[in-house]
Write a protein that binds this DNA or RNA. Structure first.
Lengths: 254, 254
DNA sequence: ACTTGTCATGTTGTACGATGAGCATACATC
DNA sequence: GATGTATGCTCATCGTACAACATGACAAGT
C-alpha cells in the first residue's frame, strides 16, 4: 500500500484555489452593515465617532475610515465633515442586480429576456410618441448598419444593440437608456449561444427574418403608431424568447 | 423702495440647502471608475500602484486607499496584498440604480413610472399565461384587502402594492419579483404626493376608479387572456402617469 | 428680547512616516 | 528539474499631526 495514495492532501477536495483572507476593513464593513440592515442603526441616525469605533473594535483609524468609505460607496452611509457619519435616509433603496453566475443557465437567461421584453415594448411605444426626426434617422442608420453586417456574413451583434439603443434614446427617458445599458451587460452570453447552434446558411436566413421584424418596429415608430410599435416589438422579442425556451427545455432533458 | 426686497439673496432660488463639496476620495473614485467603465482599464488588468497614483493625482496615500476601498465595495476592484489592485473580471455587470436624489423631482418620478409600466404590463401578460389557481386566489384576496382599506377611508397603499406583487409572483419569473421589490422602494413618494393633492371625497372616488381598473386586470389574468391583461394594466398605469405628468407641468410653470 | 460675533470643543478630511504581511522573482543548491 | 532562500515590491495596518468644518455656549450690541 503506497502511503501517498491515502494522504488527504492528494484528494481533489483540497486541491482547489485558496480563498484570500478577509482584511480588517471588510470585517468592519460587515459589522456596520449588519447593524444598519438589522435595524439597530436606523436611517438618518448617527454612527459612533471614528474614535469610539476604533476603541470598540480595536483597530486603527485607517481601517475605520476605509470601511466608512466603502459603506459610503454602497450608499449606506453619508458623512459630513465636522458632524459625523449617518445612516443614509434611503438606505433601504438598494440597487437591482442580476447575478452573473445565474446567467450560465439558459432558464435564467429566459427570465432576464422576459424582463427585457417589458421594458423594450414600452420603449418602442414611447419612441413612437416622441421620436424626433434626427432620432428616426439614427434608427434608420442603425438598420442599414445591421444590413451591411449581415451581408458581410457577420452576426450584427453590436449593430442590433445600437438599433435597440436608439429606440431607448428616442423615449427621452434616461431610465430606459440606463436600463438597456444595464441589460447590455447580459446580452453577450445570449449571442454566443445563438452562434453555437445555427448553421451559416440558416443563420443568415434567421438574421434576415429578425431584420424584417426590425423594419416593422421602425415603420411603426416612424409613422407615430405606439400601439403598432409595441405589438411589433413584443412579437420580435417573443420569438427570441421562444428560441431560448426551446433550448432550455432540450438541455433539461439531457 | 426697500433694499432688502431687491437683494438676490432673498429670492427662493438662493435659499435652498447648500450642496456639500465633494471630497478628494470621491474625486479619485470617479476618475478610476471612468477609466474602468470607459474601457481604458480592462477587466483583470492591474491598476497603477498606490505610489504611482499618489504621484499622478497629487493626493495622499490615505485618499488613494479610501478610494480603492470604495471601488472594492462596489465590486469594481479586487486587491491582493503584495501584488496589487486589479479590475474585477466581471466589472461590466453593474447594478441598476435609481438615484434617490432625483426622486425629489416629479419629472423623474414620471420617468421611473414609465419604466415600471413596461415591466408590469409584461408581468400581467405572463401572469395571465401562467398563474395557478392559488395564485389567482391570492390576487383576489389582495383586491378584497384594497376594498376594505378604501372603506375604512385609507389609501390602500400597502394593499395596492400587494396586488401588483401577487401578479409578479404569478409570472414564475424571479426577475419580475425582484424588480418590483426594487421599485417598491420608490413608490412611497408617489403615494405621498397623491395624498397631498386630493380631497377626501374625490380621493375615495379616485381610489374606486383605480380599483375598477384592478378588477379588469384581474379578470383578464383569471380568464387566461394575456393580451387583455396587458391592455388593462397599461391603461391602469398610463392613467397614473398622466396624473403625474400634469403635476410636473404645473410645477414647471411656477 | 432678539440678533450677531467670538471662542472652545468636537469630528471628519488629509497628509505623512513607520512597520508588518504577503507575494513574485531571482538565484543558489542538490 | 525541483527545492530552498534571499530580495524587492506592494498592500495592510498603525500612529501622529494638522486642516477644515460644525456645533454649542457665552458675550456684546441693538
Amino acid at each position: 500500500m503506497d502511503e501517498r495514495e491515502s494522504s488527504p492532501l492528494v484528494t481533489l477536495d483540497a486541491l482547489r484555489p485558496v480563498t484570500p483572507p478577509r482584511n480588517l476593513t471588510r470585517e468592519v464593513v460587515d459589522r456596520l452593515q449588519a447593524e444598519i440592515t438589522g435595524g439597530n442603526l436606523k436611517p438618518g441616525s448617527r454612527l459612533p465617532t471614528e474614535q469610539a469605533m476604533m476603541a470598540a473594535m480595536g483597530v486603527s483609524r485607517t481601517v475605520i475610515r476605509e470601511a466608512v468609505a466603502a459603506l459610503r460607496a454602497e450608499g449606506l452611509v453619508l458623512t459630513r465633515q465636522g458632524v459625523g457619519a449617518f445612516v443614509a435616509p434611503d438606505v433601504l433603496q438598494r440597487p437591482f442586480r442580476i447575478d452573473p453566475e445565474t446567467m450560465g443557465s439558459l432558464g435564467e437567461i429566459v427570465h432576464v429576456m422576459e424582463l427585457r421584453t417589458g421594458v423594450e415594448v414600452e420603449a418602442a411605444g414611447l419612441a413612437a410618441e416622441r421620436a424626433s426626426a434626427p432620432e428616426k434617422k439614427r434608427m434608420e442608420h442603425a438598420l442599414k448598419a445591421i444590413d451591411r453586417s449581415i451581408k458581410r456574413g457577420e452576426q450584427a451583434v453590436d449593430q442590433d444593440f445600437a438599433f435597440h439603443f436608439a429606440i431607448a434614446e428616442a423615449t427621452h427617458n434616461p431610465q430606459f437608456i440606463r436600463f438597456l445599458e444595464f441589460l447590455g451587460s447580459f446580452i453577450i452570453p445570449r449571442q454566443s449561444v445563438r452562434a453555437a447552434h445555427t448553421e451559416p446558411a440558416g443563420q443568415r436566413s434567421y438574421l434576415e427574418t429578425i431584420q424584417g421584424e426590425h423594419d416593422r418596429i421602425f415603420a411603426a415608430i416612424r409613422d407615430g403608431k405606439p400601439g403598432d410599435a409595441r405589438i411589433a416589438m413584443h412579437a420580435h422579442l417573443m420569438r427570441s424568447r421562444e428560441r431560448y425556451s426551446r433550448l432550455a427545455a432540450e438541455l433539461a432533458r439531457r
